[in-house]
């Protein structure tokens, strides 16, 4: 139970980071934490489906379900892509507006347009 509570806290921290923080790099951190909370959920809860390590040497009846872990590899890769792209956008926003604060960026960009 304690793991689930911690996981939920992690999720909330991530969500707070995205919504509550004004600094866009911190928002990206928040997104990463949020994403990782989902990854850990899959790994942790997925490891409870079955008991043995998923090594195929005859006995395959009680092995841990490998599917959730396999899925998470893809999810992590997608997470990395999103992080890289959002950082690139953040750098570009900093170049055009001179700020990392989301409200200041919006104000300065609107002044230009």
């Amino acid at each position: 139970m304690i793991e689930r509570a911690l996981l939920f806290t992690l999720f909330l921290i991530g969500f707070y980071g995205i919504v509550g923080k004004k600094h866009i790099i911190k928002k990206i951190f928040g997104l990463n934490i949020l994403n990782n909370a989902a990854v850990i959920l899959f790994i942790l809860e997925g490891s409870r489906i079955g008991t043995d390590a998923p090594i195929m040497d005859g006995q395959a009846s009680a092995i841990v379900d490998p599917v959730p872990q396999a899925l998470m590899l893809t999810a992590i890769v997608i997470g990395v892509c999103i992080t890289a792209l959002s950082l690139a956008l953040a750098v570009h926003l900093y170049r055009v507006s001179g700020s990392f604060d989301i409200d200041t960026i919006r104000m300065r960009i609107q002044d230009e347009a």
Binding site: L34, A38, H92, L93, R106
Partner: peptide, 25 residues
């Protein structure tokens, strides 16, 4: 190449990527 477009893409990315975490759950 419009500065506003980068901000729009960033906002879209943040909200949509967070929503996809919900989708994953």
């Amino acid at each position: 190449k419009k500065p506003g477009a980068s901000l729009a893409a960033f906002s879209y990315l943040m909200v949509s990527a967070s929503a996809m975490v919900f989708f994953l759950i």
